[in-house]
């Protein structure tokens, strides 16, 4: 039973960590493309918005996928 509780707690903790992780990454992406008006920068911002939306719906994995893409485009945008 202890092990079961541990596993559930682990899952909850993992979910919470995922949420914080996505939010941190979102902030990092948005900061890196701030003021950048290129297509890649705009697309990165849009992907971040989707990621946050999906995160709000509890879709952590989907949020991560969109965040991965957002980071990729933010890198292509070349930062500020």
């Amino acid at each position: 039973m202890k092990k079961l509780v541990f596993l559930v707690l682990t899952l909850c903790l993992f979910a919470g960590t995922a949420s914080a992780d996505v939010e941190d990454r979102a902030n990092a992406v948005l900061a890196s493309v701030e003021g950048n008006q290129s297509y890649e920068a705009h697309f990165a911002r849009e992907l971040v918005a989707i990621a946050e939306d999906e995160l709000g719906h509890g879709e952590a994995s989907v949020a991560r996928a969109f965040m991965d893409a957002a980071e990729k485009y933010a890198r292509q945008a070349g930062g500020k």
Binding site: Y39, F43, E46, I50, D53
Partner: peptide
């Protein structure tokens, strides 16, 4: 029109 295009692409993906 990078902003508009990016929005369209993102909506398509979403």
């Amino acid at each position: 029109a990078p902003a508009e295009l990016a929005k369209a692409e993102a909506r398509q993906l979403h």
